[in-house]
């Protein structure tokens, strides 16, 4: 995979997380939930870092994730991507719910919210956090409304650490409404340190079809496909 040399253009705080705007001229289309790997050429920076888009307007993409405090405007980074499989927003989805159960940053969900709004869907975010950088069209509901959110939505997107998956499975599975199916996708936020094709296994995720790698087969998975019993650490 080609390595792009990119420059940090600016930093921006989005929902209390420092995000990075890169000078991008060559990045192919990146979809919500896909990621890029970024290496700092500084010899003290040992492992690649995973960044997700959190705001996308044409070529102006803001990235969130493992932004290092030493990455200031003008800093050169090496980037590969986009990589992985992102969210698959059903084109006919009209009621989209988003949540992280407040266990992590929801910023990687923002491009998906934007995509849903563009398609004319209603978007609800389930969180107890006070967030200031949300499109005004997004309705915010407290987490205690999660069951109501599931009843209402026809598509739900979430972000969870691998360790957090049991909680997500418990909270988000088994839709409370009759026979209608709620499609739930989860971005599994797990370290993805290795290079293309190495398959180090650090990001392995247990699914109904066997072990899969979040870096290659994910990081977004259907919640129903995830087997979490033995695999969940912690």
């Amino acid at each position: 995979m080609k390595t792009h040399r990119v420059i940090v253009e600016s930093l921006e705080q989005v929902n209390e997380e420092i995000c990075l705007r890169l000078d991008l001229k060559t990045l192919a289309g990146i979809h919500p939930g896909q990621y890029v790997q970024v290496c700092d050429p500084d010899p003290d920076a040992l492992l690649p870092v995973t960044l997700f888009p959190c705001r996308m307007e044409m070529k102006d993409i803001l990235f969130c994730g493992g932004v290092h405090e030493s990455w200031l405007p003008g800093k050169e980074l090496h980037m590969r991507g986009p990589k992985g499989n992102g969210f698959s927003l059903p084109p006919l989805a009209r009621r989209v719910a988003l949540t992280t159960l407040d266990l992590g940053s929801l910023n990687p969900l923002l491009p998906l919210a934007g995509q849903a709004l563009e398609l004319g869907a209603e978007v609800t975010l389930l969180t107890d956090k006070r967030l200031h950088d949300l499109p005004p069209q997004i309705e915010v509901l407290p987490l205690e409304e999660i069951d109501a959110g599931k009843d209402w939505a026809d598509y739900l997107a979430a972000i969870s650490s691998y360790e957090g998956l049991p909680k997500f499975k418990k909270k988000l599975s088994h839709p409370t409404r009759g026979t209608e199916t709620l499609q739930v996708e989860v971005l599994v936020d797990t370290p993805m340190p290795c290079a293309d094709g190495v398959g180090c296994g650090a990001c392995a995720v247990q699914t109904r079809k066997g072990w899969r790698l979040a870096c290659k087969d994910g990081p977004v998975f259907q919640l129903d496909d995830l087997e979490i019993g033995e695999a969940a650490r912690g």
Partner: peptide, 21 residues
């Protein structure tokens, strides 16, 4: 994969445990 997989940086290096799946 190992059940207790880990990737953790520390000054001068990182700890990695994958189980060599």
């Amino acid at each position: 994969p190992a059940r207790e997989r880990a990737v953790q940086s520390f000054p001068g290096g990182f700890l990695l445990h994958t189980g060599h799946s």
